[in-house]
Design a protein around this nucleic acid. Sequence first.
DNA 1: TTATACACCTGAAGT
DNA 2: TACTTCAGGTGTATA
Lengths: 210, 210
Amino acid sequence: MSVNHYSTDHHHTLLWQQQQHRHTTDTSETTTTATWLHDDLKESLFEKSLTPSDVGKLNRLVIPKQHAEKYFPLNAVLVSSAAADTSSSEKGMLLSFEDESGKSWRFRYSYWNSSQSYVLTKGWSRFVKDKQLDPGDVVFFQRHRSDSRRLFIGWRRRGQGSSSSVAATNSAVNTSSMGALSYHQIHATSNYSNPPSHSEYSHYGIYFSF
Amino acid sequence: MSVNHYSTDHHHTLLWQQQQHRHTTDTSETTTTATWLHDDLKESLFEKSLTPSDVGKLNRLVIPKQHAEKYFPLNAVLVSSAAADTSSSEKGMLLSFEDESGKSWRFRYSYWNSSQSYVLTKGWSRFVKDKQLDPGDVVFFQRHRSDSRRLFIGWRRRGQGSSSSVAATNSAVNTSSMGALSYHQIHATSNYSNPPSHSEYSHYGIYFSF
DNA sequence: TTATACACCTGAAGT
DNA sequence: TACTTCAGGTGTATA
């Protein structure tokens, strides 16, 4: 069985065919029979080595600030709604990613004022449990090159290099596949406070669904 | 150098003069050049011998319930706003106290449903560290007799009697001085839960600043 | 009851 | 020094 494979420079191409069977569950998960995209069609965003807290009982993943602000700008909605200041509304969204099997994972993504940090919360612990992630394991994020609404999440075990070609097992390298609804504002009237504005944005195509 | 001095029955009077220089810092602390109030102007409220948890990593001081409800009634704001039920708003406040040097200490004060207890949380650990408080040391609270919005916090080392007159050192007896903003509601829309209602209130003059 | 979610908080480390 | 980041926590609410 062949496996997809993580490459930071996208030189590896696997031939996958796509055949999606989606069914929504109570946890808003979506499953597909796995078929895959060429790695060339995916752009690497960033990766993070998981801390004990990231895989422990805190049920959250801290997204390093520079990556969060570059790739998942939370206040983009404010820009789009012509409310450029950071007063006091619209924050917290759902981000959907497809994993290596084509399964969709939807996470709440928000900014915590108190710690000045960006986090994935709701849904994250299910991902950790499903993949049996441990401290030191790595998660990485990608997006589709031609449809930036499509986000992918992959993971690999600690000690597994990011650029090696390996056979498919449950423990080697896993990349996400399949596009999904990706950028949802979840509470137009929630009282999350705003993250700090930052002028540098990536070309990530923000897509809001209300 | 003379020192202020704690007395539970206020029979001791020291002549202090008042001269306040306030400047706000990032941590919302206020410092003053120390000059003092007559002890006669201060009313003792209560004191507590600190437990290991009070000075440890839990970063909180448990206020004995009977004292908390008598002197620092949390739900007074609900009464004043005619919202008598305990639905889901207005709770958690900031209490400001002046210490023996005139420095202002602002603590978050709230009720913990899980332990049915009243606690000082945010800011408390800084006070413990600054005063180098250890288990068995005593903290005590006072308020100004004619301006009940003014709260004072003092402390003494364990084994130091509360009614002895001692010379001023860092380790003997320390009483607070100088009034300060004292009773702040911090989040009108915060989601702290309400403490249980209790019908007996002191005559403590609640003062809210928004 | 237990697990999850949520916003808040602190200390340590880096800059 | 002051400031930022973030790992590791908290209490509370909800299911």
